[in-house]
C-alpha cells in the first residue's frame, strides 16, 4: 500500500526528475546560442544607435538609420541607389523564382527516383552526391560560357531569369536527394489505392503523394528560398544592369573596401534583409507542424 505521504514523495521525485531533465535539455539547446544572441543583439542595438557602438547598449537612440526606406541609399555622401524597393523586388523575384523552380524540378525527379527502378539509377543517385563536392568557383566561368552562347549575358531581366534558372539547377541535385528520402517514407499502398481507383499516375502523384511529403517540400522551400535570397556570386558576375541588382549586391557595395562604412545604416539594412527570410522560415515551419497529422491519418 502506498500512503499519501509516499505518493507525495513519488510525485516530488518525478517533478525533480522532470525539472533536471528540462534543465539539461534547455541548457544543451540554449547555451551554445548565447554568442548568436549576443551578435544579433549587437546588430539590433547598432541599428538603432546614432553612433558606432562596441557594446550591447544602444547609444543616441535614433530611427535615422532606416532612412533608406523612404529615400535614396547613400554611400559615403552620395546616393548609390535611388530607392531600396527595386532591390527588394529583384531579390524576392530571385528567391521565389528559385524556390518555385527547385520545388518543381525536385519533386518530379525525387518521385521518379524514389518510386521507379531503371538502369542508370544508381550512378545517377551517386553522381548527385558527388557533383555536390565540386567547388563553386569552377562553375562561374563555365556557366558564363554557356550563358553567353545562348545569348543571355548582360540582358537585364532576362539575365536575372537565367540566374534564377542556373541557381535552381545548381541547387536541385541536393534537394532531389533530400526529397527522395521523403518520398521513400510515403507508404506505397496509398498510391496503389489511388491507381486502383482509376487515378492516372500523374494525378496520384499530384493528389496523393505530394501532400504527404509536404514537410519535405517545406524544408526544400526554406533552403531554396534562403539560398536564393542570399545569392551573391552569380548575381555579381552575370548581372550588369543596375536595375536588376539584388540586396546582396547592394550590401556588398555598402561595405565596399570598408571605406565609408556607415555601421548604423548597415545594421539597419541587414536587419531588414534578414526579416523576410525569418518570416518565410516561421511561416513554413508552421506548415511543417500541421502537415504531420495529415501524413498519417489520411
Amino acid at each position: 500500500m502506498i500512503t499519501a505521504e509516499g505518493y507525495r514523495k513519488l510525485i516530488w521525485k518525478a517533478k525533480i526528475k522532470w525539472l533536471i531533465g528540462n534543465i539539461i535539455v534547455y541548457s544543451i539547446v540554449c547555451i551554445p546560442l548565447v554568442p548568436i544572441i549576443l551578435m544579433y543583439g549587437w546588430l539590433i542595438a547598432q541599428a538603432f544607435s546614432g553612433v558606432c557602438i562596441s557594446s550591447l547598449i544602444p547609444q543616441k537612440l535614433t530611427l535615422k538609420n532606416f532612412y533608406f526606406l523612404t529615400g535614396p541609399i547613400y554611400w559615403g555622401g552620395t546616393p548609390l541607389y535611388k530607392s531600396y524597393w527595386p532591390l527588394v523586388r529583384n531579390t524576392l523575384l530571385l528567391a521565389l523564382g528559385t524556390t518555385g523552380l527547385v520545388v518543381a524540378i525536385t519533386s518530379l525527379a525525387g518521385y521518379a527516383i524514389s518510386r521507379f527502378e531503371f538502369k542508370g539509377r544508381d550512378p545517377l543517385l551517386k553522381s548527385v552526391v558527388v557533383v555536390h563536392s565540386i567547388p563553386g568557383v569552377l562553375f562561374l566561368i563555365a556557366l558564363m560560357y554557356i550563358l553567353n552562347t545562348i545569348g543571355l549575358y548582360g540582358k537585364g531581366f532576362l539575365t536575372l531569369l537565367s540566374v534564377i534558372i542556373i541557381k535552381a539547377g545548381l541547387e536541385s541535385p541536393m534537394y532531389t536527394w533530400m526529397l527522395k528520402g521523403f518520398f521513400d517514407s510515403v507508404p506505397w499502398e496509398l498510391e496503389w489505392a489511388a491507381l486502383v481507383d482509376g487515378c492516372s499516375r500523374f494525378t496520384a502523384w499530384r493528389k496523393v503523394v505530394m501532400p504527404l511529403i509536404f514537410p519535405g517540400i517545406a524544408a526544400v522551400s526554406i533552403f531554396a528560398f534562403l539560398s536564393g535570397w542570399g545569392e551573391y556570386l552569380l548575381v555579381l558576375t552575370y548581372i550588369t544592369d543596375r536595375k536588376w541588382y539584388t540586396l546582396s549586391l547592394a550590401l556588398s557595395e555598402l561595405t565596399y573596401q570598408f571605406k565609408h562604412v556607415d555601421y548604423g545604416m548597415l545594421a539597419a539594412f541587414s536587419l531588414l534583409y534578414l526579416l523576410p527570410a525569418m518570416i518565410f522560415f516561421l511561416l513554413t515551419q508552421k506548415y511543417l507542424m500541421t502537415m504531420r497529422i495529415v501524413a498519417y491519418k489520411g
Partner: peptide, 24 residues
Amino acid sequence: ALSTAGKVAISAVVAGVVAGVGGY
C-alpha cells in the same frame, strides 16, 4: 487538408512564375 497542401506546394511554383511575369 490535401488540397491545402497541394495549394501551397503549387503556389510556391506559381509565385515564382507570377513574380517572374510581374518582374518582366
